[in-house]
Design a protein around this nucleic acid. Structure first.
Length: 792
RNA sequence: GCCGAAGUGGCGGAACUGGCAGACGCGCCGGACUCAAAAUCCGGUGCCCCUCGGGGCGUGCGGGUUCGAUCCCCGCCUUCGGCACCA
């Protein structure tokens, strides 16, 4: 037998898999019924920086174990791969180092693709897609047009998040603690005309349908918080002098009798109407202008500022006039941009009232019932919410209302390396969509990618100047490009029909494979990609293009691989999987990264112990070759080693399939190997060795394939997953734990299935137990076949 | 501030449904092989005490429920994450 040589073995089997396209799965014939054993396995696609990092290795190895496991259990597994290849890093690299984003991206794809193949992952490479290729973004543009057609895309002048460093607008989802998620620069508020997806139209469904999917609770919680549904009432406050009814949203209509003043956001168009022609107009407008322009951070410092407008509104409950103020603690984006202030029961209103000496009237007593609320006095506040809303609705002054925190998704970017937005601006016809048959709107090759106050595309006259598809007159193209999160909101659908030149994807193919049965990726995408994709699925379903309303049936988040406490990412050097693979081989790295701990927990990277994994494989190699010299184990052989092997099959299967844990199966195989090496003469030795190799195959497919050959067998990747023999899992004798007062005093071997009396009798017979009973007659607690606790 | 998750040997972790805490691996200690070392193999390894039979303590801290708690309940500490002037 040769010694274990990772490089040779891995090259050999990777060539075989490549030549056979061993992990490609064909699409069904048209009209074929859906195979109940179809399994769509997907990990989030990588951004193609030049190199894999250990986080990728964990993510895709985990997916690989599931892929092999499901394949060998008879599933038809779709497991594709692609590249999220538009985006800022390549563009910034081009600016910094020269070259074009396209060259850089394509070089990176070639590199990362080679590294992925070198890891031996079981991917259907025939379905590879890249977001930056016209054959892909043509359909991203087409989908944009569908959304536009259905009124789910619009362009609007609005305050948006501007990253001064990256020179582009950001979605709310990508502002983290007031900073750009990518570069960390402090984000500024700017009024700009931008393109939005109307994701808020689906707020209710995005929330409600969380109940229908098998996702981690914490992820559902993040989305729930982000969507931020509040139930309450919309109440009208009348400004008699102006014959104006101003609506406010409140979650506490029960406190209406305590509303002693009224506040309008500085950005609100109401400000002008309220003060127009009054002597306070200048002062109020000046405040509003300054307040609206204050940077977000400063605005969030809770120092209350504001100014009285001189106007009054009527509290519809009390009929009393209350003063209307303008203050920046009221946000234009939420609710109606105006509030009723109840200083007795709202902390912010209280601070404001104290600062400006406004009246504070408590209307809910300590026991939770209403006071100073006229006919509602004594009513519990929870009941009063509906009662007061109903009372006012009789007069047309209120109605039940729901409000969401979620904002529409701003997705236009003022940068180059993205899919052009397929519309033109015509002087006569306004915004005109590019006709479908003129797609794709190709991203032109330019040489200067630097943003200079306008998007780089705006400088390309050739690109910008077009004729209006509607009137034939002169028109200008949209110069903004799409957020890369648009690309990744539908890539999983393209995989089902990756080469289609006539449509984004055939509905029957998407419906055949969707939903994704198991999705794996980082929790950092909880409120971004994972929310956008859900929105896309629902919208496409409404357009009649897709059968499902939820794209990801089951979701798992792998933990972070950290280096000195920091998340590893493409931007960090330090640990290169490429070098590790060269030094140790792919199999040891694959086993090592999964053996570190539960895959959903963070890992502090240390290379200590990779050698141990190599040692484990060498030991497996040696023990298996020794066992392969022995005669085949008789069918159904019943020895301790045979039982251990069946027990290992049961454990590994349950761990991967039901528990979705990937570290303990490795331990289980190690235990089996330990037992095997201690009992090389056991008649089940060969069976135990075959079992160990077979069970480890999803983790270390190359060396296991090679070792399978030592048994004179081949194509382990196609071999059915082993099944444990139930009869051999049952124990004839069991170890009975004997406790006195809850402390273990003895362990004895007894036949399985003894009745409780007999177990108690045997427990009392133990000398070690008697020594602690002191002759007292104990009370007994029995767990059959496991434990007897005697209490004195 | 509100909401959520986690905390187990020197280290990574195991213990799945309230029933033997520490599987498996790293590290460390001892032994075999060797002129020697590496590699490999064998044995030991939670802490403390011990008359070598064993005994006590132990899963962040303090309480509780239970015959029995790493697991359930209450309070606290620490770390991490989400939301945050959201009416």
């Amino acid at each position: 037998m040769d010694t274990y040589d990772a490089q040779t073995i891995e090259a050999k089997w990777q060539a075989v898999w490549e030549a056979e396209q061993a992990f490609s799965v064909p699409n069904p014939e048209p009209g074929a019924p859906r195979d109940p054993r179809k399994f769509y396995m997907l990990e989030m696609l990588p951004y193609p920086s030049g190199n894999l990092h250990m986080g990728h290795v964990l993510n895709y190895t985990l997916g690989d174990v599931v892929t092999h496991f499901k394949r060998r259990n008879g599933y038809q597994v779709l497991r594709p791969m692609g590249y999220d290849s538009f985006g800022l890093p390549a563009e910034n690299a081009a600016i910094r180092e020269g070259g074009s984003p396209r060259e850089i991206t394509e070089r990176n794809i070639a590199s990362i693709s080679r590294q992925m193949r070198r890891m031996g992952w079981a991917i259907d490479w025939q379905r590879e897609v890249s977001a930056h290729e016209p054959s892909y973004y043509r359909w991203t543009q087409w989908l944009f047009l569908k959304f536009l057609e259905h009124g789910l895309v619009y362009r609007k002048e609005a305050p948006v998040n501007w990253c001064p460093n990256d020179q582009t607008v950001l979605a709310n989802e990508h502002v983290v603690d007031g900073r750009c998620w990518r570069c960390g620069a402090i984000v500024e508020a700017r009024d700009m005309a931008q393109w939005f997806f109307k994701i808020t139209a689906y707020a209710d469904q995005l929330l409600a349908d969380l109940d229908t999917i098998d996702w981690p609770e914490r992820t559902k919680k993040i989305q729930t918080n982000w969507i931020g549904r509040s139930e309450g009432a919309e109440i009208l406050f009348r400004v008699e002098e102006l014959d104006l009814d101003i609506p406010v949203f409140t979650t506490r209509p029960d406190t209406l009798f305590g509303a002693t003043f009224f506040v309008v956001a500085p950005e609100s168009p109401l400000v002008d109407r309220l003060v127009e022609g009054t002597e306070r107009a200048d002062e109020v407008r000046a405040y509003a202008r300054v307040a609206a322009a204050r940077p977000t951070e400063e605005r969030e410092s809770r120092e209350k500022t504001g100014v009285f407008t001189g106007r009054h509104a009527t509290n519809p409950a009390t009929g009393e006039p209350i003063p209307i103020w303008v203050a920046d603690y009221v946000l234009m984006e939420y609710g109606t941009g105006a509030i009723m202030a109840v200083p007795a029961h709202d902390e912010r209103d209280r601070e404001f009232a104290e600062a400006f000496e406004l009246p504070i009237v408590p209307v809910v007593s300590d026991d939770g019932t209403l006071v100073s609320s006229d006919r509602f006095d004594g009513l519990p506040w929870v009941e009063a919410k509906a009662a007061i809303t109903e009372w006012l609705s009789g007069r047309g002054a209120a109605k039940p209302a729901v409000n969401f925190r979620l904002r529409d998704w701003s997705f236009s970017r003022q940068r180059y390396w993205g899919a052009p937005i397929p519309v033109v601006y015509c002087e006569d016809d306004g915004i005109v969509p590019v006709p479908e048959d003129e797609l794709p709107v190709l991203l032109p090759e330019i040489t200067d990618y630097r943003p200079k106050g306008q998007p780089p595309l705006a400088a390309s006259e050739e690109f910008m100047n077009v004729t209006c598809p509607r009137c034939g007159g002169p028109a200008r193209r949209e110069a903004d490009t799409m957020d890369t999160f648009v690309d990744s909101s539908w890539y999983f659908l393209r995989y089902t029909d990756p080469h289609d030149e006539h449509e984004a994807f055939a509905r029957d193919l998407a419906d055949y494979w969707m939903p994704i049965d198991q999705y794996v990726g980082g929790i950092d995408h909880a409120k971004g990609h994972l929310l956008y994709s859900r929105f896309f699925a629902k919208a496409l379903n409404d357009f009649g293009l897709l059968g499902v309303r939820e794209p990801f049936q089951r979701l798992f988040h792998q933990g972070w691989v950290k280096l000195a406490g920091k998340r590893m990412s493409k931007s960090q050097g330090g640990v290169s999987p490429d070098e590790l693979v060269e030094q140790f081989g792919a199999d040891p790295i694959r086993i090592y990264i999964l053996f570190q701990g539960p895959a959903d927990q963070d890992i502090d990277w240390t290379p200590d112990g990779i050698e141990a994994t190599v040692r484990f494989i060498r030991r497996l190699w040696r023990v298996v070759h020794e066992a392969a010299e022995r005669p085949a184990s008789p069918e159904g052989v019943d020895t301790p080693l045979a039982r251990k092997a069946h027990e290992t099959i049961a454990r590994v299967t349950d761990d991967i399939d039901r528990r979705f844990v990937f570290n303990t199966p490795i331990s289980a195989v190690m235990e089996l190997l330990n037992d095997l090496s201690k009992a090389p003469d056991d008649p089940a030795a060969r069976f135990a060795a075959e079992t160990a190799v077979s069970l480890l195959q999803p983790y270390a497919p190359h060396v296991c394939e090679e070792l399978w050959g030592a048994f004179g067998r081949e194509r382990l990747w196609q071999e059915p997953w082993p099944v444990a023999d139930e009869a051999l899992l049952e124990r004839t004798t069991v170890q009975l734990v004997l406790q006195v007062n809850g402390k273990v005093r003895d362990r004895i071997e007894v036949p399985a299935g003894l009745p409780e009396d007999e177990l108690i009798a045997r427990a009392k017979a133990s000398e070690k137990v008697q020594a602690h009973l002191n002759g007292v007659e104990p009370k007994a607690f029995v767990v059959p076949d496991k434990l007897v606790n005697l209490v004195v």
